[in-house]
Amino acid sequence: MIPENLKYSKEHEWVKVEGETALVGITHHAQDALGDLVYIELPKVGAKLSSMQEFGVAESVKTVSTLYCPVGGEVVAVNEELKAKPEIVNEDPYEKGWMLKVKMSSPAEAGILLSAKEYGALLAK
């Protein structure tokens, strides 16, 4: 359940690097720990984020969790579908459940994030 082609943060976000842009979402482990999601607050397109800055919150029935953006840059798109259907993140956290598209200010930042193997080891602890 940990895709090899993604990078991960210790806060359980994933990053998919595509040249200078990156897609950001939360991991399967994160959505499972939160349970049924009922509201996801995302930033506006154009917002500038530094790495590991808060970009929103995910509310589940049981709890609320802050979302962090593992890479710095400008938000160029957000997943509008999640506004009406936050449960997409529960159903498909790595594909349809993406949250942000960020134009990275320093793409090298993504290099220091965890690999799938390292993230797997973190979860196994």
Binding site: G35, D36, S60, V61
Partner: peptide, 8 residues
């Protein structure tokens, strides 16, 4: 148990 299939 907190939940099995999901709270909702």
């Amino acid at each position: 148990p907190l939940s099995y299939a999901g709270i909702i």
